[in-house]
Simulated assay, not measured.
Amino acid sequence: MKNTLRIAFMGTPDFAVASLEALLENGYPVVVVVTAPDRPAGRGRTLKASPVKECAEKYGIPVLQPERLKDPEFVGQLEALDVNLQVVVAFRMLPEVVWAQPAFGTFNLHASLLPDFRGAAPIHWAVVNGETETGVTTFFIDAEIDTGQIILQEKTPIRPDETTGELYERLMQMGARLVLETVRMIEAGPVKTRTQKHLQTPKKAPKLTNENTQLDWDTPTQKVHDKIRGLCPFPGAWTHFENNGTVERVKIFRSTTDDLNDEAPSGSIVKRENRLLARTADGWLEVLEMQLPGKRRMPVKDILNGLEIQKSARFL
């Protein structure tokens, strides 16, 4: 006999929308959507709804937007809706009073092959670390972050020059399929799970900060290249750019390795016609797309049309 489901879907960004739509388009009863409160956005600072809220309203699904997930009023609203399964995709950490409530549990979609890359930015860090494979995982939430019993996993290769933005799109669709398959398993019941492996040194996916998104030109070429593509398109790898007696903060979005064999200190810059090459610890990198302060992201060949590069120019 199939379980009769009443689902609460919890998520905020567009990554979660694909999973929500997969459930709705396959007839699953999502009785409520929980998402972040509307936030000011744009130059006018007008309130903007999350992508998940916009999707829910399109389908006519009630939306809850609690500031505090432990709020008794919010917890009571979930209880009153008789929710028996919660599906979480790209949302906040849930308190036990919420995740432990449904009869069939609360499961999360995580964009990595757990137990590796637990944390806030798993897609970014898989690319930054130069991984050749990643994937998506569904697991039942427990008291610790990203440690619960694994339900399903699906793997995919990471292409050598793939950016986080490109991988994000693929994992979003993979994740939606895995969420749908996971709900079907729970509906059919019972669900077989497996315990996550204990790793002595698991790969981590911490929140992206100003400190861990800065480029270090004293590292090998491949490491610099991987960090650039791992932080593209958001938030962008950044570095200081010294030229014409000024030092500015710039972002680099695209690069490729180069076989130039000139010796120079790390961070040195060489202009070759409409190309910009930068020295790393063990070689050279060609910078393909960059963003100067107050400007939009542009191909370097276009930037060089209006920018004079001094011989002493360098990345710091």
Rank of each mutant, 00 (worst) to 15 (best):
A100G: 12
K311Y: 06
V191W: 05
F139M: 14
T164K: 08
V17T: 13
T12D: 03
V128C: 10
A111M: 13
R6M: 04
N305C: 11
R279L: 10
L307G: 08
K155S: 13
F315D: 07
Q77S: 12
L113N: 02
V287S: 04
L276Q: 12
W125Y: 13
P265M: 13
T182E: 09
L24R: 14
A176T: 09
I150A: 06
V300F: 05
S268A: 14
V87D: 10
E67W: 11
L20S: 01
N261E: 12
Q200G: 02
K58P: 06
I303S: 00
T256K: 15
K295V: 00
K2W: 07
D216M: 05
A188C: 10
S50L: 02
E54V: 14
L114T: 04
L152D: 12
A237M: 06
P102S: 04
F74E: 04
M10G: 01
T219V: 13
R279W: 06
K53V: 03
F140I: 09
R92D: 11
A36P: 00
N84H: 12
T256Y: 00
V127W: 04
R229E: 00
L276E: 10
D259W: 01
A80N: 13
T137H: 03
G60A: 04
D302E: 14
L94D: 12
L180R: 07
T137G: 07
P160Q: 05
A126E: 01
E211N: 10
M93R: 12
K223V: 15
T106W: 13
D218L: 08
T35K: 07
F107V: 04
L316A: 10
M290D: 04
G135C: 10
D82T: 02
G27D: 09
K204R: 15
